[in-house]
């Protein structure tokens, strides 16, 4: 068998499991062909372990056995194409959420999304964010066209359950006992949606909730809407105080290290 065919055959068996194809059995020297299962099992275990590392609180919420089943469904549906296993698992939140038929499923989806975004912020590129001081030196006629983009670590998320409160409780429990779980912090879905902001100004990842008005304004700023147009949009809600409100938020965002000038 040619090397190309051998690799395709071996790989498809690892990805799909099941019975060992006769051609692969022939390619592997006897009597060790049953040891092929070491690779089959290692594949499942290694990718599952990577997903557990990526999603520690979802793992604790579900318990290892249930999470393991979810992980295997995910691994079958999304084989890794990444050089680094750290990049594997982004779409797990969708699978965990499923049809969202129960509050618990919605919680799983949001926990997973939150954990993925925290990880994305954790090792995002380092940049020097725009500062209040830098803008203080700006000529007055440059303000109307002033535009921004998000620093690479910035992530936004909207929750419709108490996922972040559950995340906090699970983190505390995991610190005391890394093997803990399944943990049943009550799930609440009768809450208004909450917008979240995640960012890593230096080495530590930070997050906070955003009031709805601020979230809407921030998203406009992050989309590159010029400052004058942002103020204009805010006039509908804030009238004459729109520019002052925009300047107040902007100062806060700059202090938090959220923005790059473009």
């Amino acid at each position: 068998m040619k090397l190309t065919d051998l690799q395709l055959l071996a790989q498809s068996h690892l990805l799909e499991g099941g019975d060992m194809p006769p051609a692969l059995q022939d390619a592997i020297a006897a009597p060790a062909s049953e040891r092929w299962t070491i690779y089959v099992e290692a594949y499942r275990l290694r990718l599952t372990a990577a997903l557990c590392t990526q999603y520690p609180t979802l793992t604790a919420r579900c318990g290892r056995a249930v999470f393991g089943e979810l992980a295997w469904r995910f691994i079958r549906a999304h084989p890794s194409t990444y050089r680094s296993i750290r990049d594997y698992g982004r779409e797990l939140a969708d699978l965990a959420h499923g049809d969202g038929a129960t509050p618990e499923l919605r919680l799983h989806g949001e926990l997973a999304r939150f954990e993925w975004l925290l990880a994305a912020a954790f090792d995002a590129p380092n940049v020097t964010a725009c500062t209040v001081t830098a803008l203080a030196e700006l000529a007055p006629d440059a303000w109307p066209t002033l535009r921004f983009a998000a620093v690479p670590s910035l992530q936004r998320l909207r929750t419709t359950t108490n996922a972040v409160a559950v995340w906090r409780a699970l983190r505390r429990a995991l610190e005391e006992d890394p093997a803990c779980g399944p943990l049943a912090e009550p799930v609440a879905t009768d809450i208004a949606p909450v917008d979240w902001l995640i960012v890593r100004p230096q080495l530590e990842t930070e997050f906070r909730s955003l009031p709805a008005n601020e979230a809407a304004a921030l998203d406009l700023a992050l989309a590159g809407v010029p400052f004058a147009a942002l103020c204009e949009t805010l006039t509908a809600t804030y009238g004459d105080a729109a520019a002052l409100q925009a300047a107040t938020w902007l100062k806060g965002w700059l202090t938090e290290g959220l923005l790059l000038r473009v």
Binding site: L3, L8, L14, A27, Y43, L47, A50, S80, T81, R83
Partner: peptide, 16 residues
Amino acid sequence: WTGTGAHNLHDLLPLP
């Protein structure tokens, strides 16, 4: 080899 096509099996598989 660790995979073929676009895949990465994240394992160190022997060659013939």
